[in-house]
Design a protein around this nucleic acid. Structure first.
Length: 312
DNA sequence: GGCGGATGACCAG
DNA sequence: TGGTCCTCCGCCC
């Protein structure tokens, strides 16, 4: 899934396309039909993201609270098709451009989004402007599929969701000391703590594995055995890595000196796109020391680490 | 055509 | 800790 960087990127992408505009809101699949009916025709007033939670604001009507879970996705489309900004919307989990038939056979841009494919929980689409004689506007739409949550919340309910979350490396006002207060008292492993959204919000299995590798930290070390300076370095790294994740819409964690080009090794060829050190590289050689990357289940999730580089 | 896995989180016990 | 839910896709038969 979608870790925090995907969600913040979606908040931005939705705002760019939809904020300030009347929207057609629907739930082709039907599971959000009541909410969609209430919102249909209203204006998106803003977007917000906290950890892996996405919020779409509709003024006094409240906020749509979306959580993508393991495999939820948002797909964007436009008519005429968006062009020239290929780097702006690369493929990435949770956020992909659609590739629908978005033009009519006579070459005229479609005036309505294509029929939904599969289980579309929520569809947002811009509505054509009403100015007579104005040139046709670009039509934008977005389809949400497979979220673990898609519900309409009041402002206080939205705040309550946020209050349950730890500091988010991607939010300006986040205070890493709040996380340190939990970590430094905990006998739980740092690997488990990093995945606990009440401790740190937005870190998922990929960033967890990678940031611990980058700092040479044994994932099984207890939180309370971490030094404050180690935590501060981990936090600063998460801030940098996750911001880059938002920018590129994918997770890259390999330092410049360790890239395939720099080291003369073949690039990664799986479906995740980004270059990583250990995530899903079990039994392959560590890029730095050649040891076999290990994997183990921890709290129901797959953990990956290099037993030789991560001993401290 | 069926099975299992996936960047997540909730719940009961 | 185990079961469950959300949906899609690759793999195996």
């Amino acid at each position: 899934m979608p870790e925090g960087h995907t969600i913040h990127r979606l908040a931005r992408d939705c705002a760019e396309r939809f904020a300030g505009r009347d929207l057609a809101v629907s739930s082709p699949q039907g599971k959000f039909a009541d909410g969609a009916a209430l919102l249909d025709g209203s204006v998106l007033t803003g977007t917000d993201a906290h950890g892996k939670h996405l919020f779409l604001g509709f003024g006094p009507l409240g906020w749509v609270h979306i959580h993508l879970g393991l495999y939820g996705t948002f797909r964007f489309g436009a008519s005429p098709r968006e062009t020239g900004t290929g780097a702006g919307h690369p493929r990435g989990a949770g956020s992909q451009d659609a590739s629908p038939e978005d033009a009519l056979s006579d070459g005229e841009p479609a005036r309505v989004p294509p029929p939904p494919v599969g289980q579309v929980r929520l569809r947002l689409a811009t509505r054509p402007g009403k100015t007579p004689g104005a040139p046709p506007e670009t039509l934008y739409w977005a389809d949400l599929r497979g979220p673990t949550r898609c519900e309409l919340l009041t402002e206080p309910e939205k705040e309550a969701v946020s209050e349950r979350l730890g500091p988010d490396p991607l939010r300006v006002a986040s205070d890493p000391d709040a996380a340190w207060a939990r970590i430094s008292r905990s006998r739980t492993s740092v690997a488990a703590l990093l995945m606990d959204q009440k401790v740190v919000a937005g870190v998922g299995n990929v960033y967890r594995a990678e940031v611990l590798f980058r700092h040479g930290i044994d994932p099984y070390r207890a939180g309370r055995d971490l030094d404050r300076s180690e935590w501060e370095a981990l936090w600063a790294d998460l801030v940098a890595l996750m911001h880059e994740g938002v920018r590129n819409n994918r997770i890259d964690t390999v330092r410049d000196e360790h890239t395939p080009e720099a080291m003369g090794r073949p690039p990664r060829v799986d479906d995740h796109g980004g270059e990583v050190y250990v995530y899903r590289r079990a039994q392959q050689p560590c890029h730095l020391c050649g040891s076999e990357v290990r994997t183990a289940e921890l709290a129901g999730r797959n953990l990956f680490w290099c037993p030789s580089c991560q001993q401290s």
